[in-house]
Write a protein that binds this DNA or RNA. Structure first.
Lengths: 227, 227
DNA sequence: AAGGCTAAACTGCCATGGTAGCATGGTGGC
DNA sequence: GCCACCATGCTACCATGGCAGTTTAGCCTT
């Protein structure tokens, strides 16, 4: 129930703005799974009419972040481990395909960007700025897709992964080891640089499978968030 | 401009109904890329108010089937070969990952379904029922995902592929050889049965790369549909 | 005290009206 | 003939009202 709504709408339409505010709050677990929200409630909260709110609900339901029951109510979805696993499966498949491209051809400039990014990651961890770390982490992967000219593929991942971003937020709270994540990122850079496809595939695989180990533990610790 | 709107709405909401009617017509190329449509026009055509039409437009724009220019108009998207290629890339990646699962474990019942499906494919081709063939073809692939318990992955493909379904419709008109497609389907079944992962991967790869060859030719033949 | 009924209070859904932004076509000035 | 200007008519966007279906609360009956 601790909504954060302070962000301004940068040129976007009202509808997009509502969508983004809601999405951020859901993913950051500011609003708990199972909680009921309504068009009226949100429209008052954000001082807009019900129409854009409704449109935002529809978009969110397409990503399974909310669950609309016609004439009954709209609820924040519980985290569904089956769904998270399939999101991970999809992501692994696509990331592997792209990293394979990356080990064949990758510009120096983009490599530099990745290096910079990892430096930033270390910085965020030291400062214990976990939320910011997550963003930088995402940016790392996104950069690879960008350089391979596969931005649409990235947007597919981005969509599917709103699901499991919530799990990563939980990981923070549970304090999983981040050093390993950064090491893996450095390994990926190295593999791209040396054009070692096998190495890249293997690291990426392990990198994304980490989540598998965490999942069960998190569900045990925070059962109220799960289905 | 030859809309087909006769289908009844089966329990769906009005909004979903409008969405599906529009999507089918766009994919089937009943309405040409570049053409302008408006909330008013469609709402009159389907005898509903503008709200559900607008919601349908938003959904379609998420799949890049239409292009919304705020305060200006909404246009049917041209077929963008770059986009089609990326859709193909995504599909190849995911289909390969799933077919690998399928060669490890697949029930007899599901294998039987696939056999039946291929029989149906032959039938459709003989009857020259091309539109129906496309549906059965889709069902073939869908069945594999279903058996592997990866329906969400399928829905990702389904979404991304509305793009290139339009190309397949064009393929009909151009009369590409369908026998090869059916042969490949049979090959996939055989590979699953014998648990021959390598064979399955290779056939699937060729199966989906067929489109690559057709693309350029189709663009040459029907430039008015392309960007 | 417990169960059953009704009415009020919700929900999301759809219709409709108003508005700002943009395209277009025509007019007047040069 | 050319161009700046403005009126008109379009668009998607958002606000608002009414509605049918559902939940819930409270009263009444037993």
């Amino acid at each position: 129930m601790a909504w954060k709504i302070e962000q301004p709408r940068n040129g976007n339409s009202v509808s997009d703005h509502v969508y983004e505010v809601l999405k951020k709050n859901i993913v950051a677990l500011n609003v708990k799974p199972g909680e009921r929200i309504s068009e009226n409630e949100i429209s008052e909260l954000l001082q807009v009419s019900r129409t854009p709110v409704r449109e935002a609900f529809i978009k969110l339901s397409k990503e399974d972040l909310v669950h609309i029951l016609p004439q009954r109510g709209t609820y924040i979805s519980y985290i569904d481990l089956n769904e998270v696993e399939e999101a991970r499966f999809i992501r692994e498949s696509l990331e592997k395909s792209v990293i394979e491209l990356a080990t064949n051809e990758f510009s120096e400039d983009a490599l530099f960007l990745l290096e910079q990014n990892v430096a930033s990651q270390k910085n965020k961890i030291e400062k214990k700025a976990y939320a910011e770390f997550l963003e930088v982490d995402e940016a790392f992967h996104k950069t690879i897709f960008q350089e391979c000219n596969k931005m649409r593929t990235w947007s597919v991942i981005d969509q599917v992964n709103s699901q499991y971003k919530r799990i990563r937020v939980l990981s923070f709270i549970a304090n999983i080891n981040w050093e390993q994540t950064i090491e893996q990122h450095q390994g990926i850079i190295e593999a791209i640089r040396t054009k070692d496809t096998q190495m890249a595939l293997e690291i990426m695989s392990r990198h994304l499978k980490k989540l598998n180990i965490e999942k069960m533990e998190l569900k045990r610790k925070y059962p109220e968030y799960f289905k």
